[in-house]
Deep mutational scan, measured.
Amino acid sequence: IGSLMYASIFGNVSAIIQRLYSGTARYHTQMLRVREFIRFHQIPNPLRQRLEEYFQHAWSYTNGIDMNAVLKGFPECLQADICLHLNRSLLQHCKPFRGATKGCLRALAMKFKTTHAPPGDTLVHAGDLLTALYFISRGSIEILRGDVVVAILGKNDIFGEPLNLYARPGKSNGDVRALTYCDLHKIHRDDLLEVLDMYPEFSDHFWSSLEITFNLRDTNMIPGSPGSTELEGGFSRQRKRKLSFRRRTDKDTEQPGEVSALGPGRAGAGPSSRGRPGGPWGESPSSGPSSPESSEDEGPGRSSSPLRLVPFSSPRPPGEPPGGEPLMEDCEKSSDTCNPLSGAFSGVSNIFSFWGDSRGRQYQELPRCPAPTPSLLNIPLSSPGRRPRGDVESRLDALQRQLNRLETRLSADMATVLQLLQRQMTLVPPAYSAVTTPGPGPTSTSPLLPVSPLPTLTLDSLSQVSQFMACEELPPGAPELPQEGPTRRLSLPGQLGALTSQPLHRHGSDPG
């Protein structure tokens, strides 16, 4: 009997000691992992102490058991019943959930998450997105703005933001810190809205009876308010094209079509300037034949640059190039080494500058006005007194259609001029006259002087055409309008007829 009692007592005591040691061994194993994590990542002392304290409290609170892992091991129907039991206190005593059906309560219970916070733990920081609604079931918390405590909340209090009033989550206007050990039930806004969409009859009752104890939403960050730039940057990543407008005076608003859609830094370009900076079609017209890549860069430059609305530039004389043409100036200075066709295309550029300027006046029909002061630039669209967005969009579309028509007509005119030049060069190729044979009589004449090349004649003739079109064909006081194609086609051969009437002889060394 004594040996039996000794064996039973010894066996029970050893089993008890073994169970104690097993729990202690698990605790030390998990604690060792936490300390190894702290050492590996070199976490500083204040945060390291918070980690160790939280682990110790969580171990004593749950005995080292992962409740979520245990809950996920059950089937979904059983999980709903378990969640309904775990959140029964909240669902029974909170006013917004009263009167809900059994199915609605089960769906809500599945969406709730339980959070346990030790003292000093910050649940929400200032500036964080308010993605959830919090219900306090135990403990107390404090809300701070800077170093000032603005509120202390306790059991059955609710904090967050009214989700039904805002389409997008706002930002917190303060820090939420736990004063004691707290148990909180939180539900994400997407989950709550999903359940309320499934039960629309409960939705009206819920929003009407929901009383948020403390609204954390920062009202200064609401979209459309003066301080909402940061919020707009976070939620409006896919922005449309940006529009900046110059201020319109009362006198300017009476004149229709007073602005032109141009790229940034293009205030001095012609009315047909689009795409790359520098001139019509993204580059100076005089350098068009020598740089074919300008047409390839036109599309990307047009689509990537934001639109700006600026006044037209001052008018340019008909014979003056659009500006920024070092290529043609070098050719004029060193005409001995340049291609003979460069002079002809220089005359073509003069005609283009004249036609572009006159067509700009035809479509816009307003006098040039000086540029406004820099303080009046970049007025935002949302400022008071601005035109409605639809009106601005319609004006932009009208300007775009005008620019497209202008570009089409300029292309047709350019093709006409090039065809005339090619026809003239085919009839009378460039050549130098040879020395004529002296006559049989004693009164022999001296050799004839060489005839100037055709490109120079073409430049003079085209300059005469531009001056003739600019000065004589337009009646005084009438708006400057571009001439039609047949009129220009008839004027060019008439001007060139006198020049080509002389018999030109080919030089023996000319390969053409």
Rank of each mutant, 00 (worst) to 15 (best):
G508Y: 13
G356S: 08
V259Q: 09
A415L: 05
S394V: 11
T436N: 10
S209H: 13
L499D: 09
Y432P: 04
Q402N: 06
A412S: 06
F214P: 01
R145F: 03
C338Y: 08
S244W: 10
E320I: 13
S466A: 11
D252V: 08
L163R: 03
K251R: 07
G494R: 07
Y134E: 01
P450T: 09
P374W: 05
L454K: 06
T437H: 06
L459G: 11
S140V: 07
F159L: 06
P223N: 09
T437L: 08
S287L: 01
Q400R: 13
P455Y: 05
Q495R: 10
R246D: 15
S304Y: 04
G160E: 01
S394H: 12
F245L: 10
G227H: 10
D175L: 09
I143R: 01
P374Y: 09
I141E: 01
L420D: 04
S284A: 09
T373E: 09
S501D: 15
Q400A: 14
R274Y: 07
A261V: 12
G127K: 02
S313L: 11
L403K: 03
P326F: 13
Q400G: 06
L231T: 12
L420N: 06
P226H: 09
L144H: 08
L210I: 12
S137V: 09
D175A: 07
R409Q: 08
Y199G: 03
H505R: 08
Q400W: 06
P322D: 04
D397T: 09
N156K: 07
M469G: 05
T253Q: 13
R168N: 14
L163K: 03
P322H: 15
G288S: 14
D157I: 01
H505F: 09
N215T: 03
E254G: 08
G174M: 06
E258M: 11
Q464P: 13
P384G: 04
S342H: 13
D183R: 10
I143N: 01
P318M: 06
N378D: 01
L492I: 11
W207A: 04
A431E: 12
R395T: 09
G227V: 10
L377C: 07
E194W: 07
L403T: 06
R241V: 11
F214R: 03
R409C: 08
H505C: 06
V259K: 09
A431K: 11
Y134R: 02
T437P: 11
A269M: 09
E258I: 09
Y432W: 10
S313V: 06
E393L: 14
A412P: 03
C369M: 06
N339F: 15
D460F: 01
Y363Q: 06
P321V: 11
Q424K: 08
G127R: 02
L193M: 11
R217D: 03
Q402P: 13
S382V: 09
G263I: 12
S334L: 08
E393N: 15
L496G: 09
P306S: 10
L474N: 03
N378T: 10
R401P: 01
L492H: 11
L165E: 14
A151G: 11
L377N: 09
R138C: 10
V348M: 13
S446L: 06
S172Y: 01
T500D: 14
P486N: 15
P503K: 12
R266W: 10
S209T: 14
R247D: 10
F468L: 09
E194F: 10
P226D: 10
S452K: 11
P430R: 13
D190L: 04
A132E: 12
L309M: 15
D204P: 07
P321K: 10
R359P: 09
G265W: 12
S509H: 11
S383M: 05
I379L: 06
A344S: 11
T180W: 01
L396W: 15
S273H: 13
G139A: 01
P200M: 01
I143Q: 01
D510V: 13
L309Q: 12
C182S: 08
N173R: 10
L410C: 06
T443A: 06
L504I: 07
Q402F: 13
L474S: 08
N173H: 12
T337P: 12
S461M: 08
A344C: 03
P300C: 09
S291R: 05
P493V: 11
N220E: 13
L410G: 04
S304V: 06
D183N: 04
T408S: 11
Y181F: 07
M221R: 12
Q502W: 15
P493M: 14
L184R: 02
P388E: 13
P264V: 11
G441F: 15
F345V: 06
Q238C: 12
L243T: 11
S228R: 09
G233H: 10
G477M: 15
D297H: 13
S446F: 10
R274H: 01
Y363A: 10
S137Q: 08
S383Y: 04
L231H: 13
P429D: 13
R389Y: 12
T249P: 10
P447K: 15
H507Y: 08
I212F: 04
T426C: 08
E407H: 04
D250K: 10
A415E: 11
P479K: 15
Q255M: 13
S140I: 07
D183S: 10
E296D: 05
G347S: 13
N156P: 03
C182D: 01
G508R: 12
S433H: 10
K251F: 13
N156W: 07
A398W: 04
S203E: 10
G268Y: 11
R189K: 05
S358F: 15
S334C: 15
S314W: 08
